[in-house]
């Protein structure tokens, strides 16, 4: 039993426990400030989150107020632009800057909540399937096959037909469909980790399955999961725009980056600003998430010594 605790301790300190323990906070902060990239990522995300939270105070105009006679006005630096609309207006004469600021709300909500849902489901399933193997593994992996073979547009249409079109339902659809990638990657990692000597040692020492799973295996397999999660946040934000492209997106007049990008695609030839600014916003946010994600991965990485 002592040996078990020792392993727990040695192992825990370099991994998840770090985040749990307030004592370690300074260490984390120091490592954060050492990494310029992570700092930059944090800064970008800070701006995005701030604009989402403070949208009503930051936005210069009402994001849904139309002024149809002033449609497609270019940004301020264009000779035809005006100071009233710093980034120009869209096809219904709405202020693009204000829509961008408000749009950060929806994009963040969609990106984060869907990843939270699908990541939690997927990682849990991956752990269980990989660790317990046999019929549990079979069931979950065949469920994954079914999920993958099933076109997600069909699910979107069905959900919308039954529950009606709304933001919540879009999150449900995206959240449900995203779990497979986590599950399969985590499972594959677990498959190779569970045979490692130290896991077998813990087993031999009488460690309980759940404890082994979450305390020893999870920290060792979480790293690709986190990389995937950071990628998925970006993918979900973009999927929302794909849904708009297919006519299944967030309801108007709610501004979303994906929806704005989709509306702007018609105007690529003659009003580039409609799509460029939401495109840049998505790109920067994705950059920020990736930079921060890299750092989290490095911090969590237990750097197993065998």
């Amino acid at each position: 039993m002592e040996a078990l605790e020792a392993i727990d301790k040695a192992h825990g300190e370099s991994s998840l426990a770090q985040l749990e323990k307030g004592l370690e906070f300074r260490k984390i902060a120091r490592s954060l400030f050492k990494s310029k990239a992570a700092l930059a990522g944090l800064f970008i995300l800070f701006i995005v989150i701030a604009s989402a939270l403070l949208a009503p105070y930051l936005a210069p105009q009402d994001p849904i107020a139309q002024d149809i006679n002033n449609r497609l006005k270019p940004p301020v630096w264009d000779p035809k632009g005006s100071r009233e609309h710093l980034l120009g207006t869209d096809h219904l004469g709405r202020d693009i800057l204000s829509r961008l600021i408000y749009g950060s709300r929806i994009s963040l909500i969609v990106g984060l909540s869907t990843v939270l849902i699908s990541g939690t489901i997927g990682i849990l399933i991956g752990l269980i399937a990989g660790y317990y193997g046999s019929w549990l593994d079979d069931i979950f992996m065949r469920l994954a096959d079914i999920q993958l073979a099933f076109p997600f547009i069909l699910l979107s249409i069905a959900v919308v037909a039954v529950l009606g079109p709304s933001l919540r339902n879009i999150i449900i659809v995206l959240g449900i469909t995203g779990w497979v990638v986590y599950a399969r990657v985590i499972r594959a990692e677990v498959l190779s980790v569970r045979e490692l000597e130290f896991i077998e040692a813990i087993h031999a020492l009488g460690g309980q399955n759940l404890r082994i799973l979450f305390r020893h295996i999870l920290p060792n397999v979480i790293s690709p999961g986190i990389v995937i999660a950071t990628l998925e946040v970006a993918r979900m934000i973009i999927l929302e725009s794909a849904l708009s492209f297919l006519g299944l997106g967030v309801q108007p007049p709610t501004p979303t980056w994906g929806g704005m990008l989709n509306d702007g695609r018609q105007y690529i030839y003659n009003a580039w600003w409609l799509a460029t600014f939401p495109g840049l916003a998505i790109m920067l946010t994705v950059l920020g998430i990736n930079l921060l994600g890299d750092w989290i991965r490095d911090t969590l990485d237990p750097r197993l010594e065998i």
């Binding site: 249409i157 919308v160 037909a161 079109p165 006519g247 299944l248 309801q251 108007p252 007049p253």
Partner: peptide
């Protein structure tokens, strides 16, 4: 307030 619908649902 506008609510948009996928055409198949709309037709129904």
């Amino acid at each position: 307030q506008v609510k948009t619908h996928e055409w198949g649902n709309y037709v129904n």
